Simulated assay, not measured.
Amino acid sequence: MELNIERMTCGGCAKSVTKAIQSVDSNAKIDTDPAARAVKIETTATQAAILQVLEEAGYPATAN
């Protein structure tokens, strides 16, 4: 899945986003691009679960 995360603006943000996603699926493959404010995720978790954990972490996301 591909998501836009407007608040992810730096490497530190990307680490927080990665950590949040890994809390739902520790085996997820995550490719963050802070400059584009985008993240690509290969996961077995549902999109709803990913969106919820990102919201809770302070990085609300929208699906592409």
Score class of each variant (00 low, 15 high):
Met1Asp: 10
Glu2Trp: 11
Glu2Ala: 04
Glu2Tyr: 11
Glu2Val: 10
Leu3Tyr: 13
Leu3Lys: 12
Asn4Arg: 11
Ile5Asn: 05
Arg7Gly: 00
Arg7His: 03
Met8Leu: 05
Met8Trp: 04
Cys10Phe: 09
Cys10His: 08
Cys10Leu: 08
Gly11Gln: 07
Gly11Phe: 04
Gly11Leu: 05
Gly12Val: 06
Gly12Ser: 08
Ala14Glu: 02
Ala14Tyr: 06
Ala14Gln: 02
Ser16Arg: 15
Val17Arg: 01
Val17Trp: 05
Val17His: 03
Thr18Gln: 13
Thr18Ser: 14
Lys19Ile: 00
Lys19Thr: 08
Ala20Arg: 01
Ile21Ala: 04
Ile21Thr: 10
Ile21Asn: 06
Ile21Trp: 11
Gln22Asp: 00
Gln22Glu: 13
Gln22Met: 12
Val24Asn: 08
Asp25Tyr: 10
Asp25Arg: 05
Asp25Val: 01
Asp25Ser: 10
Asn27His: 14
Asn27Thr: 15
Ala28Phe: 14
Lys29Pro: 00
Ile30Ser: 00
Ile30Val: 10
Ile30Ala: 02
Asp31Trp: 04
Thr32Glu: 07
Thr32Ser: 07
Pro34Thr: 05
Ala35Asp: 07
Ala35Thr: 03
Ala36Phe: 11
Arg37Gln: 13
Arg37Met: 05
Ala38Arg: 15
Ala38Tyr: 04
Val39Asn: 06
Val39Asp: 03
Val39Gly: 05
Lys40Pro: 01
Ile41Gly: 03
Ile41Val: 13
Glu42Ser: 15
Glu42Val: 08
Thr44Asn: 13
Thr44Tyr: 08
Ala45Gln: 02
Ala45Arg: 05
Ala45Asp: 06
Ala45Thr: 01
Ala45Leu: 04
Thr46Leu: 03
Gln47Asp: 14
Gln47Ser: 07
Gln47Arg: 14
Ala48Thr: 14
Ala49Arg: 04
Ile50Leu: 15
Ile50Asn: 07
Val53Gly: 02
Val53Asp: 04
Val53Ala: 06
Leu54Ala: 04
Leu54Asp: 08
Leu54Arg: 12
Leu54Ser: 05
Glu55Ile: 00
Glu56Val: 04
Glu56Lys: 15
Glu56Asp: 15
Ala57Thr: 01
Gly58Thr: 03
Gly58Cys: 07
Tyr59Leu: 02
Tyr59Thr: 01
Pro60Glu: 11
Ala61Ile: 05
Ala61Thr: 01
Ala61Tyr: 08
Ala63His: 11
Ala63Lys: 15
Asn64His: 13
Asn64Ala: 12
Asn64Val: 14
